[in-house]
Amino acid sequence: HNLTITQGKLFFHYNPKLCLSEIHKMEEVSGTKGRQERNDIALKTNGDQASCENELLKFSYIRTSFDKILLRWEPYWPPDFRDLLGFMLFYKEAPYQNVTEFDGQDACGSNSWTVVDIDPPLRSNDPKSQNHPGWLMRGLKPWTQYAIFVKTLVTFSDERRTYGAKSDIIYVQTDATNPSVPLDPISVSNSSSQIILKWKPPSDPNGNITHYLVFWERQAEDSELFELDYCLKGLKLPSRTWSPPFESEDSQKHNQSEYEDSAGECCSCPKTDSQILKELEESSFRKTFEDYLHNVVFVPRKTSSGTGAEDPRPSRKRRSLGDVGNVTVAVPTVAAFPNTSSTSVPTSPEEHRPFEKVVNKESLVISGLRHFTGYRIELQACNQDTPEERCSVAAYVSARTMPEAKADDIVGPVTHEIFENNVVHLMWQEPKEPNGLIVLYEVSYRRYGDEELHLCVSRKHFALERGCRLRGLSPGNYSVRIRATSLAGNGSWTEPTYFYVTDYLDVPSNIA
């Protein structure tokens, strides 16, 4: 807008934040220059609390790290170098490059900038070799853009010569660093050979998330399962459950009422301010606690030095998902009996873990797994792929695949051998790939016309006998059925096997 004052003059007093240069501009645009008398524009009460600059400061050096910015700028000295009290560095987070010096300023003089007072450097006698002032900004957020400017702080001049310097606002972004852990990993099994893994992005990506790394490792069953005799009275049979499938998407929606109208769909109840505040506090606490764990609990591995020492970490090797089922080394339970199943799973520490690289999504279907087997899954978020990966501390989750139908069934015939004193040795093959492992066998036998009897055969007993022995049988026709019990439950009964026990007292003698 054009402003013209045809008559009258300007009068400025007691404006401590208004620089004289701005008042002189007002004289020019209003056409009143030359009308004012000496005392109409006070030299001592206008701009006496402001830094009124008329020179431009330029930054000469900028260096960044993930949490620091090192700045240096060209030296500046007023005509009387004693008038320079120091520099004021202003900075704040700036997602967009549209910041002005006066953003967030209120009537009390406060604003949204963080201000650092910096002492002037030592003055050199040689004007050509003056030290460049600077400042190291610490405690910054990774991968965050900051708006920065600097200006001088000078003393009051009796001659009211307006001098000083100020830089333009520059924008500097800190470097990326390792992201925080992925949030809320959930693993479920939808079949006997697959596990579905879902997660949420890290709360602090500290860069642009480029991919996720998912490692999985087959877990050995508890050692007590191999040692305890679950045929003993009072000892509860062990059981394991597989990871249940995901709930429906509708039930997972946030901010939804727990109660549904019987007449149909209901609208979600909005969260109160107290609920939102509580969630923010919980989120802040979780982030602080995660940072504490990362800094205190997890110790970084030592990389190899120039002395030739090897990095103890196993090298990563990509495998196809079809090879995942046989990740671990199978060892027989008892070496003397080769027909026992290889369900003991000690994992070799030198073995390469299978892994998958996930790009542009937060889910993965891990296939080719062994049925009813526990897996430990390790999830890392990465925001750099080359020249070397920059990934987060791992988040861990466990899951067990679903049982395989008929995996616990005894394959092959049940054979028998009759000894003296009416002892019958029953023999059968253990299931080759049971659900988890076989903890015991149930032997059901009966003599024709009598009630059915049951015998429990422990895992250890089966390994020693290759089956079991029935003792003290009365003469007669017998039928026997056997079924295995694994961590997933009972298998199917075998087809009945028949044998006849004679009275050993009636056996004919070869003595003449």
Rank of each mutant, 00 (worst) to 15 (best):
V334I: 15
A220N: 09
D291Y: 15
I410P: 03
C231L: 02
S392P: 04
F298H: 13
Q256P: 13
F285P: 10
Y230N: 13
A336V: 05
A407M: 03
G234N: 06
A335H: 10
R353V: 08
C456P: 03
P354N: 07
T340E: 14
K406H: 11
K361R: 07
H352C: 12
K460T: 08
L237N: 07
F337Y: 12
V345A: 06
V501N: 06
H461A: 08
Y504A: 08
L235M: 12
V296P: 10
P403A: 07
V480K: 00
Y478G: 00
P354V: 07
S479A: 05
S257E: 15
V334S: 11
K236F: 03
E258A: 12
N360H: 07
A484I: 03
E249Y: 05
D229M: 12
A330D: 02
Y500W: 13
R318G: 03
H461C: 10
I276F: 08
G306M: 14
A263W: 02
I276C: 03
P312V: 13
E356I: 11
S274K: 07
G264M: 08
S305W: 12
I366P: 00
S367R: 08
S486C: 01
N490I: 02
K278P: 12
Q429T: 06
Y445W: 12
E389G: 06
G322E: 07
P354S: 08
P332M: 10
V507T: 12
R390G: 13
E452A: 12
E388C: 14
S492N: 03
T307Q: 08
N206D: 03
T386V: 03
N208H: 05
L369S: 01
G491S: 07
K278A: 15
G325D: 15
R376Q: 04
P349V: 04
L437R: 12
N477L: 06
T303M: 09
G476Y: 00
E356G: 14
A399M: 13
G476L: 00
T303I: 11
P475F: 05
C231K: 02
P431N: 03
S458R: 07
S203R: 08
H416T: 09
R318T: 07
D385P: 05
V507Q: 15
K460I: 11
V397Q: 02
W493A: 00
W428P: 00
V457L: 14
F226M: 08
A488V: 11
D503W: 14
E442Y: 11
H254E: 04
L321R: 12
L280P: 15
K406Y: 04
V345Q: 14
V393G: 03
L237V: 09
Y375V: 06
G322M: 14
L225P: 07
N435T: 00
E388T: 13
K460N: 15
T241K: 09
L379I: 09
V299Q: 12
V345C: 06
G234S: 11
Q252W: 12
E388D: 15
P300R: 11
T485V: 04
S251Q: 14
G308T: 09
E356H: 13
C231S: 03
E221Q: 04
V393L: 05
E452H: 06
D273L: 09
Y498N: 10
E281L: 12
T303D: 15
T303W: 07
I377F: 05
R316T: 06
S320Q: 08
Y504R: 05
E417H: 04
E260F: 08
S492F: 10
E351S: 14
V480Y: 06
P508S: 04
K236R: 09
R376V: 08
L277R: 12
A330R: 08
E265K: 09
D261L: 09
V393Q: 03
R481K: 13
L505I: 14
G325V: 13
Y292H: 04
L235P: 07
L464D: 06
S444M: 08
D291C: 09
A220I: 09
Y504V: 12
G436L: 11
S239T: 14
V334R: 12
D273V: 04
L473D: 00
G476P: 00
Q380D: 12
L213Q: 13
D204P: 03
S444P: 01
D229H: 06
L237T: 09
K271G: 06
P413I: 02
G449K: 07
A399H: 12
S262D: 15
R390M: 04
K302V: 06
Y259I: 04
P434R: 02
C231P: 03
K357Q: 05
V480P: 01
Q252N: 02
D409A: 07
N422Y: 08
V439F: 09
T333F: 15
S243T: 06
S348A: 14
A220S: 12
H425N: 14
L426A: 01
G489M: 09
E265S: 07
S444Y: 13
Y292E: 06
T288V: 13
S341L: 10
V457Y: 04
R218Y: 12
F215V: 12
V214F: 10
D311K: 15
R466V: 05
S243H: 11
E452C: 11
D261S: 11
S283K: 05
S509Q: 13
D408V: 01
V480R: 01
L213M: 12
Q380E: 14
T307V: 09
T241Q: 11
S474E: 15
L293A: 12
Y292S: 10
Q380L: 13
G368S: 11
V296H: 09
P332Y: 03
K287V: 14
E260I: 07
I276Q: 15
E356T: 12
G436V: 15
L237Y: 02
N435R: 01
Y292K: 08
V297A: 08
T303E: 11
K361E: 09
A220E: 15
P245C: 10
D385K: 13
D506Y: 14
V214H: 00
V324D: 04
I438S: 03
P270A: 06
A220T: 14
P431R: 01
N206L: 14
N477C: 05
H416V: 14
R301W: 12
S315A: 08
V297E: 08
S474F: 11
S392G: 01
F289W: 13
S486P: 00
E356C: 11
D311H: 14
L487V: 08
